[in-house]
Structures are given as structure tokens and as C-alpha cells.
Amino acid sequence: MAPNLSGYHRALDLFEDMVGGVPGDRWSAPSPCPEWTARDVTGHVIAGQYAILALATGRPAPDAPCRPGVFAADDALQAWRTARKECDAALTPEALRRPIPFGTLGEVPLIDFLGASVLEPLVHSWDLARATGQPARLDPGLVHHAFATAQVVAAGLRRDGRLGPALTPPRGADEQTRLLAFLGRAAEPAATRPAD
């Protein structure tokens, strides 16, 4: 694993932990993402791995179904692990140098895109946690990184209708709560961590 991909891999590890912690009877539970269940959220992030695989290899991305849960049908954890393994195998040094389109920034190397891709699995880890009753405390370092990314990409996502309006966070909210509010998610402030 390249050192500058450590945050990306930590975000994927967190998401995998959340998928593995979903009780069997909670896959159809509604998530904070409108009209999506826990399975849909999981399928969406799985589809994201296949989209990155397509960027790495130059092959077409899979068609996006109207219900992303099809990517997580049956054994969602195994479907996630398969997608992640295939994507990881494609992230060769050559692939990581491949220029890819990145919105208004033009083209960036895939490795830089992956650095910004922490946002997606991180926030959907929270969505999955909320949908399935799991603890929703996120890695503060990843939250800080993801918030910086969100401020760059949110306007385009809102313009495309893929992200709702920002909410006003509670006074004194921690960074996780402010990030979630910026992304249109209402959340109670995360528990304060004891001082180290």
C-alpha cells in the first residue's frame, strides 16, 4: 500500500467494518440517504469500487441501476470484499499515474483522485451506521480530510442534484457533525473523546 493512500484504505476499512456489523434483519432499514436502504448504501459504495476499477483500467464503468442494492444482493460483505480486492489489484503504479477527469479541476492523476475519494466511503459509513444501529463515530483525521474535499466538490454535486442543501449545525458542533450538516445530514454531535 502506498503511504499516500493510507487515508483511502482506512476509509475503506471503516466501511468494511460497518458492512460486517450490519445485523441480518437490518439490510432493508431506511438510511439517511433518501429512498435508499442500508443495502442500497452498501451497493452504492460497492459500485464506486467498480467505477474506480474502470478508471484504473480504462474499461467502461458498470451501468448504474436505479436501485444500487443490486450490487450488494445476497452476501453484501462478500460482494464488498470482492469489489475491493478487484479494485486494489488494478491500482498498479502505472494506473495510479493515469490522468482522469475530476470536475472543474480538469484532469488529475488517479492517485490524487483516490486521496479525495475518502469522502464517499467515510460518509456512507456513517449512513450505514445510522441505518443499522451501529456506533457512528468516524475517524477524526479522515473527517478533517473529507471536509476539505467536500468543500471543493459540494457545489457541483448540488448542481447535479446528487447532494441536498447544507444544514445549519448546532452551536459548538464538532467537525464530524459540521461535515455531516454540510452534506445535508442531521446528526447529534459525536461523543467527546477523552483526552489522551
Rank of each mutant, 00 (worst) to 15 (best):
I111R: 11
P101C: 13
D63M: 06
K85M: 11
I100W: 01
P101N: 11
G48C: 06
G58A: 06
V45K: 02
A73D: 04
C66P: 14
P101V: 12
P93A: 01
A56Q: 10
A83L: 09
P101R: 15
T82C: 08
D40R: 00
G43Q: 06
P99A: 15
D74K: 06
A90W: 03
G69W: 01
P109R: 12
E107W: 03
E94W: 10
P62K: 09
I52M: 06
P65L: 05
I52C: 07
G48K: 02
L55H: 11
I46L: 00
V70S: 04
G106K: 11
V70Q: 02
D74R: 12
R67L: 03
D74W: 01
F113E: 02
D75E: 08
P65F: 00
G43L: 04
P60A: 07
V108M: 04
I111S: 14
L105P: 02
A116F: 09
A76E: 13
I46F: 04
A79L: 08
F113P: 04
A61W: 08
L77A: 12
E107K: 14
L114C: 08
L105D: 10
S117M: 12
L91S: 09
G58K: 04
C66W: 10
Q78W: 07
D112I: 06
R81L: 09
R84T: 10
D88K: 10
L91A: 14
